Simulated scan of single mutants.
Amino acid sequence: MTRQTRTLPLKRAAHVYLVRDGKLLLVEERMDDGSIFYGLPGGKAQPGETLADAAARQVQEETGLQVSDLTFVSLLEGELLTGTKNECYAMFARFTATAQGEIAPTDPEVVGVKWVPFDQVEGLVRYGPPPECEERNPLIWLPTRDYLAGEARTYYPI
């Protein structure tokens, strides 16, 4: 039997767990359908940019905070959104960091930034359609759920 191979676009992104007094910093972004999405600060890496550099840049854009002392927590990797127009091979890193500065987002998609108690984070996450939106895939949130429970693994296959 011949195995077929295919080439998928590669999506590299990095997000940061910023924690203060038992609360996790989340950004509020407006989705294409008008709904509000709560997510970790961070986002896509630019070509040639390391995941740590992408995390620091994206946190500054989305929150106004400067981060230092980034520490790797986990990597989520594999084929994502199989069968949709946005199917890709994803590499999503999660870091912790120290943050300085004042909250002042410059990213126009960010409509708010808030510190959320650990036990309320999952209640803000919307799972489900549209299938082309990886932020609503429960697998994307598994590393965060484990991190908040003190059970983070270093690798999460999709």
Rank of each mutant, 00 (worst) to 15 (best):
A13D: 05
Y155Q: 05
T2A: 13
H15N: 15
S35T: 10
G123I: 03
Q66S: 15
G34H: 07
G128R: 02
L142R: 08
Q4A: 15
T50G: 11
P117D: 09
L70P: 08
T63P: 06
L65Y: 11
E61V: 11
A93K: 02
Y89T: 07
G34Y: 05
S68Y: 04
P108L: 12
Y89P: 14
Y38C: 01
L40G: 07
T7V: 15
G112N: 02
L139C: 06
G101K: 00
A99Y: 11
R136H: 03
F37L: 15
L80W: 12
I36N: 02
L24W: 08
D69Q: 12
Y155P: 00
A45G: 13
V110Q: 01
E77R: 14
E122Y: 10
Q100P: 00
Q100R: 13
Q120A: 12
L76T: 15
L18C: 06
E28P: 01
G39R: 05
D119L: 03
F72C: 08
L139K: 11
A97D: 04
P108C: 05
L76D: 11
G112Y: 05
E135P: 02
A14V: 11
G22N: 06
G34N: 00
A14S: 13
H15I: 13
A93H: 09
R126G: 03
A149F: 00
Q120D: 11
R126M: 08
R57C: 14
P138Q: 00
E151I: 03
Q120W: 09
L40D: 03
G43M: 03
P131Q: 13
